[in-house]
């Protein structure tokens, strides 16, 4: 089914892969966002969808992931793309096959999209260079998780109408977070003022060179924030002595109803999930009117449809 708006967006698309947001320019991010909005409208109003028939997407999950995989899967199926996924536990990577060989084999089987989730930073870039099919980064180590960054951007823009000038806090384990990086790049390219907040051991000063502000004190950062994005705290970091204890982390960096008193009344609370209630935030806050957590999930679907749609056009647009 032809959609003139989507057609116009996809004609300008020139990338085979979605590896990182750092390297995308504003107009490319804008294209994905515009397409995602269109898909959201189509879904809401039950309009006919454009189909990417006879295309196959495969998710190679070398690291556990449920929500990202399911979101990609539903996005694919809504577009008529056949979707399958390989779990790292059952893949031949477990038998010692190299990522290169695994990916080359999958390419030879004729897939069109490869979604890769991998614990090693750079693995999506590695495959994008290696393969002549579209590679979508579903999270590579501590590097990037571009669709998450895009859905965060979409959620914030939708809520505030504009992103320019907004003050956004990203709180938690910034050092190991691919979400922090992707969301930072998306928001800062759209003109938001991003401040990273977390314990010093998880927030090295190099983040200042990204063009972000950094702070080790959540309490003093709260009053100015329009939006607070809380990140999941991975317990294995504590075992590596990066902070003394979970309770000490909670005391300094957990968003509580007490701390909410310091915030703007209508501050937007976001979290990429899965939320560990009582650690990153007090349980009630996740369900409060300030929370946009489920909106993020909903927008994630539209973003991933847009990504399939635009990357799918790469091979059409080529002369």
């Amino acid at each position: 089914m032809q959609n003139l708006k989507l057609d116009a967006i996809k004609r300008k698309w020139k990338r085979k892969d979605l590896v990182a947001l750092e390297t995308l320019d504003f107009s490319e991010i804008e294209a994905i966002l515009l397409a995602a909005k269109e898909f959201k409208t189509i879904l809401k109003e039950n309009l006919p969808l454009p189909f990417l028939k006879r295309r196959t997407a495969l998710a190679l999950m070398v690291e556990p992931s449920t929500r990202t995989r399911v979101s990609f899967e539903i996005a694919a199926k809504k577009l008529g793309i056949s979707f399958l996924s390989i779990d790292y536990k059952t893949s031949s990577i477990q038998k010692g096959e190299s990522l290169k060989d695994t990916a080359k084999n999958l390419e030879a089987l004729g897939i069109d999209f490869l979604i890769i989730r991998h614990p090693a930073a750079g693995s999506a870039a590695f495959l994008a260079k290696l393969l002549n099919i579209s590679v979508i980064n579903g999270g590579d180590g501590a590097h990037e998780h571009p669709t998450q960054g895009l859905l965060d951007l979409m959620t914030i823009e939708e809520h505030f109408g504009t992103v320019r000038g907004l003050k956004v806090l990203i709180v938690g384990d910034i050092l190991h977070s691919r979400v922090a990086r992707s969301t930072f790049w998306a928001l800062s390219k759209y003109g938001a003022k991003v401040k990273f907040v977390g314990p010093i051991t998880l927030l090295p000063s190099y983040f200042k060179d990204f063009g972000a502000e950094i702070s080790y004190n959540l309490d003093e950062s709260l009053p100015f924030a329009d939006c607070i994005i809380l990140l999941r705290l991975q317990h294995e970091r504590q075992r590596k002595d990066l902070f003394p204890s979970i309770s000490e982390y909670i005391a300094s960096y957990s968003l509580t109803t007490e701390r909410m008193k310091k915030c703007k009344k209508d501050v937007l609370i976001m979290h990429p999930g899965p939320v560990e209630r009582g650690v990153e935030m007090e349980s009630e806050l996740a369900d409060s009117p300030n929370s946009a957590i489920l909106k993020q999930v909903e927008n994630g679907l539209a973003i991933r449809m847009a990504v399939f749609y635009l990357l799918g056009s790469y091979f059409e647009n080529r002369p």
Binding site: A121, G122, H143, Y206
Partner: peptide
């Protein structure tokens, strides 16, 4: 340094 932070390595 800056680059390891950027690249997530």
């Amino acid at each position: 340094g800056l680059w390891s932070t950027l690249l997530g390595l």
